[in-house]
Amino acid sequence: MSSISFFTPGDDPGADFLSLLKHNGLDPFSSDLPGSIDAGHATTVLAVRCDGGVVVAGDRRATAGHLISHRDMQKVFPADDRSAVAIAGAAGPALQMVRVFQLQLEYYEKIEGKPLTLEGKANQLAEMLRGNLPQAMQGLAVVPIFAGYDDTRETGRLFQFDVTGGRYEEQDFATSGSGSLHAGTVIKLGFRSDLTTDDALLLAVKALWHAADEDSATGGPDPIRGIYPVLSAITANGFRQLTDDESGEVFSQFREELSGGE
């Protein structure tokens, strides 16, 4: 553990947590690995814009080859209280990236005395992906979605990324992972610009269900264990993740709709 210290002006890492880590010999994305690993990106995560915010959701399954390794994996995380990040890709590097990203946002806020703008946060994540490119080339790719509530524009916004750190702002929705094609189609058909938060949650549930129905690496609802996909909403009131029970409610609503009842 390094002790407390001052930096000389030229040396000062400023509000950048990543360079503070590197300064202390703790590069979280170092990549002098020999060979490559196929870690896959078997998942479905998505974000849908709604009136007054954005909904972010993801399934819970983690796979190792053809086996299911975890049934209650979390792939949607609050980045801070105004935004969320959802991950697809190699689990280890992805979780590490989320952790460093969360720390970076909080660190910046504390050092500078005010939080980054939503756009600034998205750029920070893009920067981290760029830093992870050597690892991605070796098979440990991370492909996140970033979404949040933009306080200055008073609207939800969402961003898609590629492994090279490319940042693409989407207007209506974004999906990532092996089930993203199916989920994306469902959302595309059901999307309207005036969706309420509840409508968007229901649409997210439909998309995840169809993705799980077609893609073996995407997990569906598991009522026996009480494990449901993670649903979250970010509005002017901040980030809120639904409990498993509440997610289960949205799934029963979907089931009723499927069976034609009301």
Partner: peptide, 28 residues
């Protein structure tokens, strides 16, 4: 700022619960 850095690094390396005021005060 030095305190924020010290605390964040310690929390990153160990865990958030391991960051305490007594050790920070001693560092100061």
């Amino acid at each position: 700022i030095a305190g924020v850095r010290y605390a964040e690094l310690k929390g990153y390396q160990y865990s958030r619960e391991d960051v305490d005021a007594r050790s920070l005060a001693n560092q100061y």
